[in-house]
Amino acid sequence: MNNPLYFGSASQPLFGMLHRPQGALRQTGIVLCPSWGTEALRSYRGLRQLAQVLSQSGFPVLRFDYSGTGDSGGDGRQASVANWLDDLREAAALLRSETGVNGLCLTGLRFGALLAQEAVASGAVSAQSVALWDAPPSGEVFVANLQQMDQAFNEKLAQQRKLRSQLAAPARDELLGHDWPDGLDADIARLPGLRKDLPGRVIFVSRDRTPPDSVESIRLPDAGHWSDVDRIHAPWLPAASFRIVSQRLADGLP
């Protein structure tokens, strides 16, 4: 069963969707941390499906939108990593209070993976495990990839249109059609790649990247196509990968 809810400040509430578990309640709740911009739109339905698969395994799962994104309150031009870490802290607290779980697993997709490990490393969220799904090598690489995609996307649009119908050049504070305020690129670029100082269990989830031997990993059958400009609006819905990840988490988390 899904329960939509608003939480956080009354003036700028965050939107979330709580998937209550089917069957016996596990002691671990899972917070799904979405990616940014076009990647978040591409993966919205997919994260919903992942949440449903996880809840069928007994996990309560919370999906939510960062402030200034999706259905949450706020202006995307005010976005910052610090604000989104606060949002993640609020989301984790909500999941605990709504369900009574005593353990947390943050599962982050792409940018969400970088944010999830930052939240745990900085102590903003106390989680016993972190799953990093298609995590970029670093925040810097993630930003560079977005900028390359933006350039390729704009070139593609320009080629498709005649001179008279050319789109205006994007403003400095927008990227791929989304708000990209001054300083956000540097903010995200400061986020490190896979950290070695994370407490608890770390699970690296990817088809294409292999973590160091010491890190637990799940090898996926599906690619994310995160750098393919032709799939920039194509939904991310890797059903086989959802089942594999859910099974592994169900095997290892209380």
């Binding site: 119908s165 789109l167 403003a171 927008e174 059609g177 609006h233």
Partner: peptide
């Protein structure tokens, strides 16, 4: 509005 697109990929439009 030839300079617009239905994905509204520019904030100005």
């Amino acid at each position: 509005i030839p300079e617009a697109d239905h994905r509204y990929s520019r904030r100005s439009t």
